[in-house]
């Protein structure tokens, strides 16, 4: 027996698909700004392993010499990023959807099992609700990161008017570094996220557009009653 299973509410789909392009524009315009003082490196003991960013990277994306433009876009789009994120959090709290998302005590232990399962080291994954343990942690972390980006962003945007916030973020200098690292975090998240979505398949992906998934329900006639189906209801991402 097939069945329509409601998965993602309209609000959640809206927040997700608004956030994606808006965050992309924020990162793009952020890069135009970062170019103005691109001093960050990955270095240990004075040895520079990587410079953010190599010249060819700027050239490829046309990031160079566009600081004013970057600031103008960044300080316009920030409102949409903030508003969408704010409404998302409010909605999650009011609707109770946060319960699906917030890591539980066991999530931290289970996340490893999920990882091992995803890496094909372990055959089975722990039973899950809408999201598995690793997803709960990753998606909640993204929300915390969003808060972080807004807080550090505001701290470097108005460090005098919000001097208390700037102080909380470790000062202007540190706040800019955190703001940058969080951005790297989004890009890293995005890469993993895309990989997981591809692996989870079309059925899972389209549910983020339609809101539902068609699931096979084991009925008494077709399936013997005592079956432990290994979880694979396309919930991977």
């Amino acid at each position: 027996m097939r069945k329509i299973k409601e998965k993602h509410s309209l609000a959640m789909r809206w927040f997700h698909w608004v956030n994606f392009p808006v965050l992309t524009i924020m990162i793009w315009s952020g890069m135009l700004i970062y170019w103005g003082n691109d001093v960050y490196t990955l270095s240990i003991g004075g040895h520079v392993f990587f410079k953010f960013f190599p010249e060819g990277f700027y050239r490829f994306f046309h990031f160079s010499s566009r600081l004013a433009e970057g600031m103008a876009f960044h300080f316009f789009m920030m409102w949409f990023f903030f508003l969408n994120g704010f409404l998302y959090v409010v909605y999650s709290i009011i609707s109770g959807e946060w319960r699906n998302l917030f890591p539980e005590k066991k999530s931290f232990k289970e996340a490893w099992l999920v990882l091992l399962h995803d890496l094909h080291i372990r055959k089975t994954a722990p039973p899950q609700g809408k999201y598995n343990a690793a997803q709960r942690i990753a998606y909640s972390a993204i929300i915390v990161m969003g808060f972080g980006s807004i807080a550090t962003g505001l701290a470097i945007y108005k460090p005098v008017q919000f001097n208390w916030l700037c102080w909380l973020c470790g000062g202007y200098h540190v706040a800019r570094i955190i703001h940058f690292i969080l951005t790297l975090g989004y890009v890293f998240f995005f890469l993993i996220h895309i990989l997981q979505v591809v692996l989870a398949g079309w059925r899972n992906f389209q549910s983020v557009i339609t809101g539902f998934e068609v699931v096979k329900e084991p009925s008494a006639e077709t399936v013997p009653p005592v079956t432990e189906t290994p979880i694979d209801d396309g919930n991977a991402n």
Partner: peptide
């Protein structure tokens, strides 16, 4: 005070 440049350095 911490002098801040629009380029991003301080």
């Amino acid at each position: 005070f911490d002098f801040k440049c629009v380029e991003g350095w301080d």
